[in-house]
Each structure stands twice: as C-alpha cells, then as structure tokens.
Design a protein around this nucleic acid. Sequence first.
DNA 1: GAGCTCATGT
Length: 669
Amino acid sequence: MACRRSFQSFRRFHYYFSSAFSQVSSSLLCCGFSHTYGYMFHAYSSLAQQLLDEISQPNFPDFHNVIRRHSDERSFTQVLQVYASMLSHGFLPNGSTLNFIIKACTALPALSFGWAVHAQAVLLGFEAATFIQNGIIVMYARFREIATARAVFDKLANKDVVSWTSIMSGYVQNGYPFDALQIFRTMRIDSTVIPDFIALVSALKACMDVGDLEQGSSVHVLVVKFGVEDEPDLLTTLIAMYAKCGQVHVARYVFDQVTSPEPLLWNAMISGYAKNGNAEEAVDLFKEMVARNVQPDSITLRSAILACAQVGCLEAAKWIWGSANANGFESDMFVSTAVIDMFAKCGSMALAHSVFESIPKKDVVVWSAIIMGYGLHGQVKEAIELFHGMILSNIQPNDVTYVGLLSACKHSGLVEEGRRYFYSMKEHAIEPRHQHYACLVDLLGRSGHLEEAFMLIREMPMAPKVTVWGALLNACRIYSNVELGKYAAEQVFAIEPTNAGHYVQLSNIYACFGMWKDVARIRVLMKERGAKKPMGFSSIEINGKLQSFYAGDKSHSRSMEIYAMLDKLEAKLKKFGFLPHIDLVLHDVGHEEKEVSLRNHSERIAIAYGLISTPPGTTLRIIKNLRACVNCHSATKLISKFEQREIVVRDANRFHHFKHGLCSCGDYW
DNA sequence: GAGCTCATGT
C-alpha cells in the first residue's frame, strides 16, 4: 500500500532504520541511504527527473509509474535515482515498488543500496511476503552473499517453488553445486512444492557442474514425470548435462527428438561434441545447422572453431571462417582470435597471419595467439619479431604470451634466447608459472644441459608436475643418462602410473645400453600397473574429409593399392640409402620384424593413401595423435624429395613442414 | 517473481 507520511514520520523511519539494524552495519546503511539518495538526487538529472519536475506536486503513483517505466527499460540506475527522490519527497514504497527496487539493486548490482532496501522491507512489514523475500534471496546471491541469502531463505515461512529455485540457483551460480543438490533433495523430501521446469533446469545445472550422471539422469526422469520435456530451455541444459558427463550419444538422442531445434540447442550440442573430442561430429553438425538456415551466433562459431582446431582440417577451417564472415562476425574479436588459433592448428600460418593483420585493435590475446601459432610451426624468428612488435605497440605481454614465446624457443632449440626470456619475465612483473618452467626444463634438457635443467626443477616454487619430470626424462633418453633418467622416471611414474609412454622412455634408455634385464623388468611393471599405450593413428585430409589409419591398418577399401604404394616407397627409400633406426623399438624382436612394423606406422600409411588419392604436386596434410617418431620423420623427409610433395604433419606437439627432403623443424623436436 | 548454451591463448 502506498503511504503518504508526514515529514516527521519519515524522520522517524530513518531513526528506526539506523537503530534497529545497527548490528548489521549501521554505517553502511546510513551511507547506503541518506548518502545515496541525497547524492544521487543532486548529482544526476534524468529524463524521469525532468518528467517529475514538470509536475509541481508529484504524488506516489507518479513516482511509482516512472520507476516501473525505467525498470521495464532496464534503466536501473535511474530506478534508484527516482526512488531516492521519492523517499526525499516523503513517500514510502508499497510491495510492488520495492520489487522494482530490489530488481534494480540485483541487476546493477548496488550492494549498499540493496542492504538498505532489505532493512526497509523488514521495517515496512514485508518479512513474511514470499514474493518480496524471493527477490531478496536472488539479490544476495548476486552479491555473492550466499550465506545471507540462505539466512533469508531459512527464515521464510511460506516457501514457494520460486523460493526453492532462487536459493538453489544461488548456490549454483556461486560455485556450490553440492549445496544446490542438497537443497533440491530437501525440497523433494520435506516440502509439498512441485518442481516446475525452471527448478529442474537449476537442478540439472548443478548435476552438470558436479558431473554427476546418476543424479542428472534421475532429474531427467522427473522432467518426463512432470511432463516438461518439451521446454526448449530445459532441453538445452539437459543436453549440456549429458555432454558434460561424457554421454554425448544420449545428448544427441535428446537432440534428435526435437523437430526444429532453437539456436541455443544447436549450440549446446555442437559444444558438447567439441568438448568431448568428437570434433568431426561438431563440425558436421555446424554445417547441418547452417544448411538448415539456423542463424549461428558467436557461441556457435566459437564451438565450431574450437572443434575444427582440434581435428586440424584446413578445408573445414576455411569453410567455417567463410560462414563467420557471411554472418557478420568478421570484426568479432573473440571469433577472430579463435580463428587465428584454428588456422595455426590447421597448418596455415599464412591464413592465420592474414586474419591477425585484419584486426585493427589487437589486444594481448590476439598477439599471444599469433605468437603461439608461429611457435607451433617452429618459425621462432617470426614469433620473436612479433613479440617485439607487440611491445613496440605498447601492449603488455602476459604469462600466456611468454608460454608462446618460450615454446617457440623450445621448438627451435634456442637455448640462449629461451633462458633470457624466462628470466626477463620479472621485468614485466610476471611470475613464471608451471608451464614456463616446463618449457625451460624441456629446452635445457633437449640441448643437453641436463644438470641445469635438474637444478631449475629443484628451484621451482611449486611442485613439479608430470610435464616437467617428463621433459627431463625425455632429455635423459636423448642423452642416454641412466641415473638421472631413473630418478625422473620414478617421479613421473608416481604421478601417472598408467601412462605407458613414460615406461617406454625409460625402457629405451636401458635398451640403448643393452640392459635387457631392466627392459624386461619395466615391461612387467607396465603390465602390473595396467599401463597402456594409446593406439597411434594418423589422419589425412582428402577433399576436406579426414581419413584415419592405425598402424598396420588394412581396413580401407583401397588397402591393396595403399600397400602396393608402401612397397614402392620402401624400395625407393632403400635406393636413397634410408636406414631405419631400430633401437627405438621397445619389443625385443628380430631386425626384420622391426623393419616391417616401422614401415607400417600409421603416418606412412596415411602418406601412401594421400599419394594414390591426389594429383601430383598436391600438398599432403597429416594429423597424428602421437609425437613424430624418428623413423617416420627421416622417411617423410626423403619421400617429400623423391615424390616432389610438400607434406605437412601435425603431431601431438607441433607442426612439421616437409619439403625437398628437409623438415622445417630442422630435425629438432 | 526463479533458469540454461559458451566464454578466444598453454
């Protein structure tokens, strides 16, 4: 109810106002009010103010209506200004006015004002008004005052579904999904409130954040039980939940039930694929979305771009970039930066660079992306030039810029420079993080500075992770250092006991010295601990489509031709005096067998398939999930020479550009 | 009156 009070009673309100709530924070409240409205009233002039000024004696409905109109227009600062003005005219709010004020405080967010409004609501007798208290719960959740929100919720006598949903989503938004689920359970067990679809959305989001498939599925059951499975927004969260829990097929099943999915639903599904590593499906679904004339937004594009960067398919990358431009995202910084990264990871620094050039105001992230890209391709000179260009443009490098710069040095073996950049980070007030140490340890180790690398590890202010010890182990393998290698391996095994790659590294060190007993011991250890080597595979891009091969793969329909080509390649390699490095094969088998298994590595099969599927002179683009092996690397160099092909290989860590018998990595990787 | 997709670089 609107109340017209005398000036005296208004003063009395202020008296209660500061004395009754002094335990909360009297100074805050006083500031929040007498200050805020007084200050605001004099400092600002708004349209609403002018409107009010035109009325010589504005009454309560005048103020209320102006507040409502500003609220509808989302001009929340003005809502508070007019409210302050209303109070100074001696009017007090009714429940409806208060809701507009609470909403404005929440949206801005206006903390001190919000506290004061809460106090005012209590004084005006709205303590048991569920529709007011619900808004206050949301407001405190927004202020990250989740304990206060909970206190308001607990005190509320008549909790409706909105009260429950408000506190539940408050917990979710503040990063406490377990508490949110606890609230949901309490609501189901201790109250008669029936959850509606918004309550279920919040519960699903909590399950998603926890990654709890079992609870998520049980909420899905409720969705069906309460017959809200046709709510588009609920489906979005349901799909995201299943995708987050790794059940991308279930997510797709839900998606397929919808006849004309909304853009948000496409986004949830595409990003679900991208996050689960089903990158090809993500790109295909994006293409389908565009084919069905659904307008992609910046989130769709970012998800598709991320997926494409993962698979590394250049044709798909060009297509996505084209559709980003066609839909008006060519000047979206977030999209452009992601595109730079995508082109770099799809093997085209030329395209990455042209996008980079097209960005008028480059921020630190844009610069970092391009520097990282050149590093990935072993073009350290360009990376360093860009780094200095960035500083000349008055853009301060950050820790990620240095990751890019150091990894560029690492990929090219620039020890001096890498060391210098690492220690110069302090000049830019950047504390080296774990990744920076990992880069420098790798760089020092690969260049034979094993002692210095080890010393650096000992000086690290944080616990070294597997990347650091793994880099040292790798260096020990290269330089055949048994003692240090054993030590590094122990650290690595303790962190990742089931990663077979580490065992192979140590085993190779032993094999190098003919310590076959130790090799056998490692093999037993691997078996005991259930360590498995990930299956190596290589993919090749033919006409924009990726075709994948495993080592010794004979499943392809053109397998006969592929193996005939492999025989031809083998003969030519022999003619060019190619000698396989057989030491690196873990298994203790005869020489001939080793040679056979080497020539059947997935990379070689992919190349053979590329040679029989494309016209002479076409660049072959290969993507593999493991690091390039020494044999394949040497063989690919020779193949690029006698087949006169440029071969671009993306391995697990970086790019190799093979041309005229040489590789861009300079045999350093 | 309450809710959701993603969030550029390692």
